[in-house]
């Protein structure tokens, strides 16, 4: 099962190394990880998507909490939350297919952020399913390059 975990950590050098080292050493399987500053200058937030049983997840949370640089670990998998990731997809496009591609991208509320003679670059933001669907639809045209961010998530309302 997949879990989304939000981790507040100290914004200092070496923090990511500590967390990555913990995961590899204890054999936790990370699907995606994104990290960035928060509203507080000295705090960063890591959003993790991890696979594993409830027991594995419990151990992961406890091990993360043991790190001195970790301030707070919250499993937000079952909380009402908004989550997004983003992708750039460079797809083959010539004069005959370009307009079709633009239509597909419009339907998905993506954006064309670069156009070249034989390709376009698409920016798409959304949950995992949406990005997967976009990728599937663009596949037949020939995907040249794809890059996607890890997921970021925030629970709704107060808290």
């Amino acid at each position: 099962m997949k879990h989304t975990v939000a981790v507040q950590v100290a914004n200092e050098s070496g923090v990511l190394a500590r967390i990555a080292s913990l995961f590899s050493r204890r054999g936790f399987n990370i699907e995606s990880l994104s990290v960035g500053q928060t509203e507080k200058e000295d705090v960063s937030r890591i959003t993790l998507v991890v696979c594993g049983s409830q027991r594995v997840l419990e151990q992961l949370e406890k091990q993360l909490n043991k790190l001195i640089v970790v301030y707070k670990v919250s499993n937000i998998t079952n909380d009402p939350a908004v989550s997004r990731s983003m992708a750039f997809i460079k797809v083959r496009a010539d004069y005959s297919t370009r307009s079709e591609i633009i239509q597909i991208v419009d339907v998905f509320r993506g954006e064309i952020v670069d156009v070249a003679n034989d390709s376009v670059m698409v920016e798409i933001t959304g949950d995992e399913g949406k990005i997967n669907a976009m990728e599937e639809l663009l596949e037949p045209y020939g995907i040249i390059e794809l890059v996607r961010t890890g997921k970021i998530a925030m629970t709704r309302g107060k808290k």
Binding site: G14, A17, R18, S21, L22, R25, L67, I68
Partner: peptide
């Protein structure tokens, strides 16, 4: 040494 000792110390500092 902080990199090396990360998994075998409770914590470390540079």
């Amino acid at each position: 040494i902080t990199g090396i000792s990360m998994p075998i110390t409770k914590h470390n500092y540079l």
